[in-house]
C-alpha cells in the first residue's frame, strides 16, 4: 500500500537574496516569556536557533517545537549554550504570559519572544521571515508564516535553515555544526 499525506516533502533551499542578516546586524528588540527585554547583542557569542510561529497554531507550531525538543534532547548538554527561541508572529494574542504557558510544554531551553506589532515586524524583516494574518469566520484568524528553523553560528553568521519536518538525521548534524 502507498502512504499518502504522512509527511510533506521538503522544499528547495531558500533563495540567497532572502537569507537572514547576521545577528550582529539585526536591530530588533523583543520581550521574552519572562518579561525580559531581549536584543540581538544579548546573543553575541552564542549559537542561535530561531523559529517563527504562534500559540494558536495547532499543527505546524507544536510539531516544530516537539521536533526542536527532541533535537535538544539528543544534543544534551552540548546545546545548553545555544539560544533557542520561538518568535511569535501573533503578538496580539501571544503576550509573555501566554508564551510562558506554551513553552512550558516543551524543552526548558526554548524561549518565547514577542513584542509590539512593529517590534515583531522588525524581527521578521531581519530574519527575512514572512507572516500574514488570514481571517476566518466570526472575527477569528490564523497566521501563515515562515516555517523553517534558522541556525546561526556563535559569531552571528547565518548557517542554514532546517526545513519543516526535516528528518532528525539531517537536523541534528546541522545544529551540531553551529555548536563548535
Amino acid at each position: 500500500m502507498l502512504g499518502v499525506g504522512a509527511y510533506r516533502t521538503r522544499k528547495q533551499p531558500t533563495r540567497s537574496d532572502l537569507l537572514p542578516v547576521p545577528i550582529g546586524e539585526m536591530t530588533w528588540t523583543l520581550t521574552d516569556h519572562l518579561g525580559r527585554s531581549v536584543r540581538p547583542a544579548d546573543w553575541a557569542g552564542r549559537p542561535v536557533m530561531v523559529f517563527f510561529g504562534f500559540t494558536w497554531c495547532p499543527d505546524v507550531c507544536p510539531t516544530t517545537l516537539s521536533d526542536i525538543s527532541l533535537w535538544l534532547e539528543e544534543l544534551g548538554a552540548d546545546a545548553d549554550r545555544m539560544i533557542v527561541a520561538l518568535i511569535s508572529v501573533d503578538p496580539e494574542r501571544d503576550t509573555p504570559d501566554v508564551l510562558a504557558d506554551y513553552v512550558s510544554n516543551f524543552d526548558q531551553r526554548i524561549l518565547g519572544l514577542t513584542g509590539s506589532a512593529d517590534e515583531v515586524a522588525q524581527a521578521a524583516a531581519d530574519f527575512r521571515a514572512t507572516y500574514r494574518r488570514v481571517a476566518k469566520d466570526a472575527g477569528d484568524y490564523t497566521m501563515d508564516h515562515t516555517a523553517g528553523v534558522f541556525l546561526f553560528h556563535p559569531d552571528g553568521r547565518f548557517v542554514s535553515i532546517i526545513d519543516f519536518h526535516e528528518d532528525r538525521r539531517f537536523a541534528v548534524p546541522k545544529i551540531r555544526r553551529t555548536l563548535s
Binding site: 522544499k11 508564516h145 515562515t146 516555517a147
Partner: peptide
Amino acid sequence: VKDGIASM
C-alpha cells in the same frame, strides 16, 4: 508549506 511559508 510552499516557498518556506506554512499555511492551512
